[in-house]
Nucleic acid binder design. Structure first.
Length: 521
DNA sequence: CTGGGGAAGGGGCCC
DNA sequence: CGGGCCCCTTCCCCA
């Protein structure tokens, strides 16, 4: 019996020892793992800190450069009284392959019952890796007119990092819209700036995005399948910032570019555009601005919703703005004359003169802004003080104007201010400016901006001529050509020279006739 | 040289 | 969104 007791005691002791040893082992393992985790966490935190500092350094650098450029532009532009435009091969060489979109910018201004500007802080800026970055700026205003003359952007994180500060003023004379002068109840404008990383990692999303999306859906267009993408860029995690920081300094934002007061130069009609060939992309227009430049990275498209109007810019075009160059480059069709028209008219037409981004907000029916995203190929400036004569010309063309007079046409082209009834249309139209030609002929490598143009062109290769003249058996590949041909038989000459009365079957004949015979009139 | 005509590209509207 | 349609424009050729 006693032996049995001793045996049990020994067993208990052994088990206790074993249990203690096991616990010790477990504790040791836990401690080791914990130490590893702690180490990893510490390292991650250090990495985050390093990245944050790197970002801040980049932002500081960009802000400094932009400020310098802004100062340069201030010195250059205000004294000028003439406008000049230079365009070099704006569209030539634009190919879909070359024109890959790498980032995005959006500015939207729409009415809302707010006057609170929000600005989301950029989270991901990876300049070195060429990661695309989308910049989304949404400006909501209850009354664009009220908010018009002076609009300021205030960054959410402005207090944290005043280097982010920016200032957008949209008209002259500037009207104090600083938050410091407006009571919260008076706030009628809400602005948000969202910078969306092109990487699938992080997306900054403003609180107004949802509202804007809803607004888009109400803009008379079928909800654009791409609308969401336009605003969100990618389905990444969303962070949101908001604050009511101080008024921002012009041109200090390193990650987004805006039309700033100094950039707009209210009342100054001087417009110097320089579109150059980008050696990295073949012939590709660039608008360059000394004001913008390195502040932004890659961009894909830009959208402006202005008082129920949206302007969106598909743009990876390395647009550049060069205020110093005044010569004109060659462009065979359309836009060069439009730019010239703008230049000319801007000297005499106060309306045109006010088509600066500043006035755009004020004018309500025009949109003009500037952005300076850049991509790996160069700097991008966006400024669309251009081509304001398009509307006049469109009106001259049988009243098929697309001007923003109609409330239905709230989607404005960032480049020429033309109004369109829906987002898809303005996207399509803006290919005119961006030179995007996504449809290429497999037989001759020609590229077209619209698919039906490509299909029409391909009849050149197929020889298909489905339209035959009932009078002479002549055949045409296009109906409009048959229609024109029919005038040969009908003798229709609807275009009469106002100077000599001579009549022509085509407007172009009349034009050439007048140029040659009545050019002095 | 001028005008006529055809061919083709570009842009916008509409369905 | 694709495609038809229309208009404008330029280029080229020819009489």
């Amino acid at each position: 019996m006693a032996n049995c007791m001793v045996f049990h005691t020994q067993i208990a002791s052994i088990m206790e020892v074993l249990a203690n040893a096991a616990v010790a082992d477990i504790c040791k393992l836990v401690d080791d793992d914990y130490a590893v985790f702690r180490l990893e966490i510490t390292q991650s935190q250090k990495e985050n800190g390093a990245l944050r500092r790197k970002l801040q350094l980049l932002e500081m650098k960009v802000a400094r450069e932009r400020a310098e450029r802004t100062m340069m532009r201030e010195r250059i532009v205000p004294g000028s009284t003439t406008s000049s435009v230079k365009i070099l091969d704006r569209y030539r060489g634009m190919a879909s392959g070359e024109g890959h979109l790498t980032g995005g910018h959006r500015i939207s201004v729409k009415p809302a019952g707010h006057n609170t500007w929000r600005d989301d802080q950029p989270i991901t800026v990876d300049e070195g890796s060429g990661i695309s970055t989308q910049h989304v700026i949404m400006i909501e205003s209850a009354d664009a007119e009220a908010a018009g003359p002076g609009v300021k952007l205030e960054r959410s994180e402005g207090e944290d990092d005043p280097r982010h500060s920016r200032d957008i003023q949209t008209g002259a004379p500037p009207v104090a819209t600083d938050d410091s002068t407006i009571s919260p109840a008076q706030h009628r404008t809400r602005r948000s700036i969202t910078e969306v990383s092109g990487t699938p990692n992080t997306v900054l999303k403003s609180e107004t995005d949802t509202e804007t999306l809803m607004g888009l859906g109400q803009l008379g267009c079928p909800p654009a399948p791409r609308s969401e993408n336009l605003l969100y860029g990618n389905p990444s995690p969303v962070l949101s910032h908001q604050d009511s920081g101080d008024a921002l300094q012009t041109g200090n934002d390193p990650s987004c570019s805006y039309a700033t007061e100094t950039e707009m130069i209210p009342g100054d009609t001087s417009v110097d555009l320089d579109t150059q060939t980008n050696p990295m992309r073949g012939d590709w227009n660039r608008y360059s601005s000394s004001v913008y430049s390195e502040g932004c990275l890659n961009k894909k498209r830009e959208v402006i919703v202005l008082d129920d109007m949206i302007v969106k810019v598909e743009d990876d075009t390395p647009l550049t703005w060069n205020a110093n160059e005044t010569h004109l480059g060659g462009h065979s069709q359309g836009n060069i004359s439009d730019f010239l028209d703008y230049r000319e008219s801007s000297e005499t037409n106060s309306n045109v003169a006010t088509h600066s981004p500043l006035h755009a907000f004020r004018d309500h029916d025009t949109v003009s802004t500037s952005m300076g995203p850049s991509d790996s190929h160069g700097r991008v400036l966006f400024d669309q003080v251009l081509n304001s004569n398009d509307r006049a010309r469109a009106q001259a063309q049988g009243g098929r104007t697309t001007s923003g007079n109609s409330k239905e046409k709230r989607f404005l082209c960032m480049f020429c201010h033309k109004g369109f009834s829906c987002l898809q249309k303005v996207e399509s139209h803006q290919r005119v400016h961006t030179g995007e030609k996504s449809f290429s002929c497999t037989q001759c490598e020609k590229r077209f901006s619209h698919q039906h143009h490509l299909k029409r062109h391909q009849r050149v290769h197929t020889g298909e001529k489905p339209y035959s003249c009932p009078q002479c058996e002549k055949r045409f590949s296009r109906q409009d050509q048959l229609k024109m041909h029919l005038k040969v038989h009908t003798g229709e000459r609807p275009f009469a020279c106002t100077h000599c009365g001579k009549r022509f079957s085509e407007r172009s004949y009349l034009r050439t006739h007048q140029q040659k015979n009545h050019s002095t009139l």
